[in-house]
Design a protein around this nucleic acid. Structure first.
Length: 274
DNA sequence: CCGACAACCTGTGAGC
DNA sequence: TGCTCACAGGTTGTCG
């Protein structure tokens, strides 16, 4: 479910609940995820104090201190993952794979499709390979039109799948790639190296704005559970093109089209986007 | 190095 | 109602 905004909303929901709190232990019901879960996660996490809740791309990072070894709990929600707080003794559902137990409540990780990841990274180890290959943060200072223009000079692939390549830029998933390109008036089919520097000057702010708006829209209703349903976020923001094939464009009297790129659905308005 | 594609896994909705 | 198929918000690995 989650792209960058959903993960960031999740992080903000998590932070006030767990920062400074001590983890009593963890329960692993099913270790089968995208990468196998450590069998000793419970012992590793027991007694850890959560020093900070950070985000890198779509990865949540819980910095931990004071257990058997300092380190970082890395969580990725994959396509269908979610985190929520539940009271003690709440019976686990079919896809509730991991519990992280705090003094007053349980942080429960569920993931029907098992594309998610829960990993322990010990302090002092080399950065985990999953994180080491990540590109730059789209809401960070480095993400500029000049940078994106330079990074795409040798890329003949269509711009939309490139925006979704986390080795280049992190966090832009299938929904927000389509939405950002609509906002910038750029066709998702256009070769990345045939987009001018000036038009990247439109695209970069469009991506930032699209992500920021989505974070702001999702950021309202967080309290005792962690929001990770991008669908709900999308309803709140009202998508311009995503999942609106055949429906009227919101900007002109055209119709939203759907095509397939890299095995994923892309939505756009051929009249508004070139 | 680049780009296209299959694969991982489970659930859901559409169509017959 | 029940079956089958296509598709779903991510990422990696393989192949040409």
């Amino acid at each position: 479910m989650p792209e960058l905004p959903e993960v960031e909303v999740c992080r903000r929901g998590l932070q006030p609940e767990v920062e400074g709190q001590t983890i009593l232990g963890a329960v692993v019901r099913s270790p089968r995820l995208r990468l196998p879960l450590s069998a000793t996660l419970g012992e590793t996490l027991a007694g850890q104090r959560v020093a900070a809740v950070r985000r890198r791309g779509k990865y949540l990072l819980l910095d931990c201190r004071g257990g058997v070894e300092d380190g970082c709990l890395i969580i990725h929600l994959g396509m269908s993952g979610s985190l929520r707080f539940v009271p003690f003794a709440t019976p686990p559902g079919k896809h509730d794979h991991v519990d992280i137990v705090f003094a007053g409540q349980i942080l429960r990780f569920a993931d029907p499709r098992r594309f998610g990841v829960v990993l322990w990274q010990a302090a002092g180890e080399a950065p985990h390979p999953l994180l080491a290959v990540l590109g730059i943060e789209p809401l960070g200072d480095e993400f500029t039109a000049d940078w994106l223009f330079a990074a795409t000079r040798r890329r003949a692939a269509p711009i939309k799948p490139l925006l979704m390549d986390s080795h280049l830029v992190v966090g832009v998933g299938n929904i927000y790639a389509s939405e950002s390109l609509f906002r910038a008036g750029i066709s998702p089919l256009r070769a990345a190296n045939r987009i001018s520097r000036e038009r990247y000057g439109q695209l970069v702010p469009a991506i930032r704005q699209t992500l920021s708006d989505a974070i702001a829209a999702g950021g309202s209703s967080i309290r005792d559970y962690v929001h990770s349903d991008g669908g709900a976020g999308c309803f709140q923001v009202e998508c311009a093109v995503y999942d609106r094939a055949g429906e009227p464009c919101r900007r002109c009297d055209g119709v939203v089209r759907q095509v397939r790129q890299g095995g994923r659905s892309t939505f756009y308005c051929a009249a508004c986007q070139h």
